[in-house]
């Protein structure tokens, strides 16, 4: 029996035949998948294939030119965005705020927990929690950006290259975060080349993003 502490409402995501066009140029098309609670969707494809664009279309920042994105079991009174966590290329860290202030802000803005210490410890930043984020290295900044995932519970995580700038331990940490989230019923959609540890192979779906952009260029 799977625990579903991270996804009590059993939110699922259905994507049908999604496509996105930018300036008359088709970036990607025909992306379909369903994400049930506890599943990881890995988007794979060469550079320029439209992985980031596909993620942006999923969370609604870019308009889709075709297809549907539907969330199952969400409260009709609430917006889909309130079920999402997004970590993009840039981590969203303010360098003049301390590590703790950065996380406390996100916790409050997302309606999350008041106690951000567990998230700081999970990111391995407890020794410098009261230092300004400007002293952090690129990898530590990325860890701080990812720690945002832990301060407020959102069932669906959308991650764009979450392991860039991270070392080997960092890769493992992110893999573990994703595995833990899914083990408790969460959904993770990530554009990454990372292998997710400790997760049943059937819970990991790989979606290849088309080669249309590359084809057009050649």
């Amino acid at each position: 029996m799977r625990k579903n502490g991270k996804n009590p409402e059993n939110i699922a995501l259905n994507v049908m035949n999604l496509a996105c066009e930018r300036g008359g140029f088709e970036i990607f098309s025909g992306v379909s998948f369903t994400a049930q609670p506890g599943e990881v969707i890995l988007l794979r494809g060469p550079n320029g294939a439209g992985k980031s664009t596909c993620l942006a279309t999923l969370y609604g920042v870019l308009p889709k030119s075709f297809g549907t994105v539907s969330f199952e079991n969400i409260d009709p009174e609430r917006e889909p965005r309130e079920y999402l966590h997004i970590v993009g290329h840039v981590p969203g860290v303010k360098t003049t705020l301390t590590v703790k202030e950065n996380l406390t802000f996100w916790a409050q803005l997302y309606g999350g927990t008041e106690n951000v210490l567990p998230a700081i410890e999970a990111a391995g930043l407890e020794a410098i929690q009261d230092s300004e984020a400007s002293i952090l290295s690129a990898g530590q900044t990325r860890r701080l950006g990812l720690a945002r995932l832990l301060v407020a519970n959102r069932p669906i995580w959308i991650l764009d290259e979450p392991t860039s700038a991270l070392d080997k331990q960092g890769d493992q940490w992110v893999g573990q975060l994703i595995a833990d989230h899914c083990a408790e019923g969460g959904i993770v959609i990530a554009a990454t080349h990372l292998d997710i540890p400790h997760l049943a192979p059937e819970a990991v779906k790989t979606v290849m993003i088309g080669y249309s952009a590359v084809d057009h260029a050649s």
């Binding site: 999402l84 981590p91 969203g92 803005l109 309606g111 959102r154």
Partner: peptide
């Protein structure tokens, strides 16, 4: 906008 905070703010429980 440049450091990605604005994107993350759009997922806030605040419009």
């Amino acid at each position: 906008h440049e450091d990605g905070s604005l994107l993350a703010m759009r997922q806030a429980s605040l419009p």
